[in-house]
């Protein structure tokens, strides 16, 4: 069990990790993330990179949908904007990696704000439909603005170069993707310690009274759209460096649905939920594939017979979450933690 900690100052009580135990765990986590690339093979590094990219995009969507209550099915399209921006900057201008990623985030933020304008008038399902429009319109732009996007053939992206070194393996890219992911997550967590994050939650819970209490609705909603799209843009930019080719089909509407499912499975409106949801959605299909691989020696036809089952199992797991744990993985984690804090006095 954990002993209660008394805090001396308000500043200490407002800290992100407010107990020594939490700080130690965070340090251990960072150390584990730093050691991981030396222990894992290419395959796991590839998955880690992909999961981290999804974590960034899902966290952005969580700010918008989970915290501000604005349902969006445009997140993948905004990733596309970031990916194309980075691809063009890298392939045509040859500007530095970090500048490209920042550019991808900012351009996506601008585009996201434009498509966020309907949120002042419509919400819920209607807003979701309005954001699908973003998906279609942006797909059209990617496919037809050939002078910039090269149309359906897409853009080949040279490897990211960092101080003269080409980041062309999952191992090397890990050192670009993971620190950015950690920084963006800390940023998101910080947000909800301040007036900006409180305003988002207020708009989600009761937008009408929020306005009377001094929160400008349009501004707050557009800020949330901009931020969510910025995260999407950076994630899309990293995606471009990761897969090295960007085409109009890279960011389909289905990916937006995948990202939305991740925040629901993980837990809406918690930073941890976004992380867990993205990791779950990225890794579980792979685990199921591995599982099928395990039985192949004993049952040679396993791949043929189990592959469709695999998809069904994944779908069933998502439905299971919706029914049995609507608060998501983050809530399961909190319950487990509470159990250990109180143990052995209360179980």
């Amino acid at each position: 069990m954990r002993i209660a900690t008394a805090k001396e100052t308000y500043a200490a009580d407002e800290a992100l990790f407010d107990t020594a135990v939490q700080r130690v765990w965070f340090a251990i986590l960072l150390a584990a993330l730093a050691l991981f690339p030396f222990l894992a093979d290419q395959y796991w590094l590839f998955l880690a990179g992909l999961a981290a990219i999804n974590v960034i995009s899902v966290t952005g969507l969580n700010i918008l949908t989970g915290y501000t209550g604005l349902v969006s099915l445009g997140q993948a399209a905004f990733m596309g904007v970031g990916a194309y921006t980075v691809a063009v900057m890298e392939a045509r201008l040859g500007t530095p990696v970090l500048l490209n990623l920042l550019g991808g985030g900012l351009v996506a933020a601008g585009v996201g704000m434009v498509f966020g304008l309907p949120s002042l008038r419509v919400k819920g399902l209607y807003l979701a439909i309005a954001t699908i429009a973003a998906s279609f319109i942006l797909h059209f732009v990617f496919a037809n603005w050939t002078s910039v996007t090269r149309g359906v053939s897409g853009i080949n992206v040279p490897p990211a170069a960092f101080f003269g070194m080409a980041l062309d393996t999952p191992f090397k890219l890990y050192w670009l993707i993971m620190p950015i992911t950690v920084l963006l997550l800390l940023g998101a967590a910080n947000l909800f310690r301040t007036r900006v994050g409180r305003a988002f939650i207020a708009v989600r819970d009761r937008d009408i009274s929020a306005e009377v209490l001094g929160i400008p609705l349009l501004r707050t909603k557009l800020t949330s759209f901009a931020l969510a799209s910025f995260y999407a843009g950076v994630a899309g930019g990293l995606w471009a460096y990761f897969f090295r080719v960007v085409t109009p089909e890279s960011f389909p509407l289905l990916l937006s649905i995948f990202l939305l499912a991740a925040i629901i499975v993980g837990g809406m409106g918690t930073i941890l939920g976004g992380i867990l949801g993205a990791v779950f959605m990225t890794l579980v299909p792979e685990f199921l594939k591995l599982l099928v691989g395990f039985v192949t020696p004993v049952w040679p036809d396993a791949a043929v017979h189990l592959s469709p089952v695999r998809t069904v199992v994944f779908g069933a797991m998502i439905v299971g979450f919706l029914i049995f744990e609507p608060q998501g993985l983050a809530e399961m984690w909190r319950r487990t933690r509470r159990f250990f804090h109180l143990w052995p006095f209360k179980t």
Partner: peptide, 28 residues
């Protein structure tokens, strides 16, 4: 606001008088 603690609900009242911008907030 049901999703917030008592303290955050009260703090929210000060919103209009505070200056913290998006960048300040991200870096805290």
């Amino acid at each position: 606001f049901r999703g917030m603690t008592v303290l955050d609900n009260i703090k929210l009242g000060r919103h209009a008088h505070m200056k913290t911008g998006l960048l300040d907030a991200l870096f805290y």
